[in-house]
């Protein structure tokens, strides 16, 4: 066996992340959601499930679509007991926005991507509130806004982690970036 090439060759160069990794990370994110966060803490938590989905959809746009995001959002609705469909719509909208921009975002470095993804995360945090307000079950609460800001700030580190894991796992080395 010759030593591994510096840059992945052939199919590995363009191969998207493995489906198993995406599923594993999403399952971990959902389990983290199910942890007994206190009632005081929960409204402040950034939406790491959506952050993760955005991260993966940038890396593997063919594997994750609005439909998957919709299912994940539905799961979140069930966990949080919000109106069914509120988070689902927010998730599918966010992933739609990211995928529609995916070609453009690929050209940016991590910070540039974060600047694009931040507003998406913020809007996605506010959309469930807006939707439940539209159907008349709204609450006026400013904490989701802060949670959205926190999510926007934390997305870049999370994305870096995902990138690191993804490239190490596939033996691409630290410098390879997808």
């Amino acid at each position: 066996m010759s030593p591994a090439p510096l840059i992945p060759q052939g199919a590995a160069l363009v191969a998207p992340p493995e489906r198993g990794m995406i599923i594993t990370s999403v399952v971990v994110a959902v389990l983290l959601l199910l942890l007994p966060w206190g009632a005081e803490l929960r409204p402040w938590l950034p939406d790491w499930l959506l952050m993760l989905l955005i991260s993966w959809s940038l890396r593997a746009p063919r594997m994750l679509g609005p439909g998957h995001a919709f299912v994940a959002g539905l799961l979140l609705d069930l966990i949080h007991g919000t109106l069914l469909g509120a988070h689902a719509l927010a998730y599918s909208s966010a992933i739609f926005a990211v995928l529609a921009w995916q070609r453009r975002l690929e050209g940016f470095d991590s910070r540039g991507q974060a600047l694009h993804v931040g507003p998406v995360l913020l809007l996605a945090a506010l959309l469930p509130l807006l939707l439940s307000g539209l159907v008349g079950e709204g609450v006026s609460d400013w904490r989701p806004f802060v949670a959205g800001l926190i999510a926007a700030l934390l997305w870049a580190p999370l994305d870096a982690l995902v990138g690191l894991w993804s490239s190490q796992r596939r033996g691409l080395g630290k410098d390879a970036r997808l």
Binding site: L84, A88, L89, S92, V135
Partner: peptide, 29 residues
């Protein structure tokens, strides 16, 4: 992509309405 997104929007809105107006999704919950 746009069509898939539109499908999720339709599904989501109908879920919202069903859950809010008719309380039909209690079994699912």
């Amino acid at each position: 992509l746009a069509l898939r997104y539109a499908l999720t929007v339709i599904l989501g809105v109908s879920l919202l309405v069903m859950d809010h107006r008719y309380d039909a999704l209690g079994a699912m919950r």
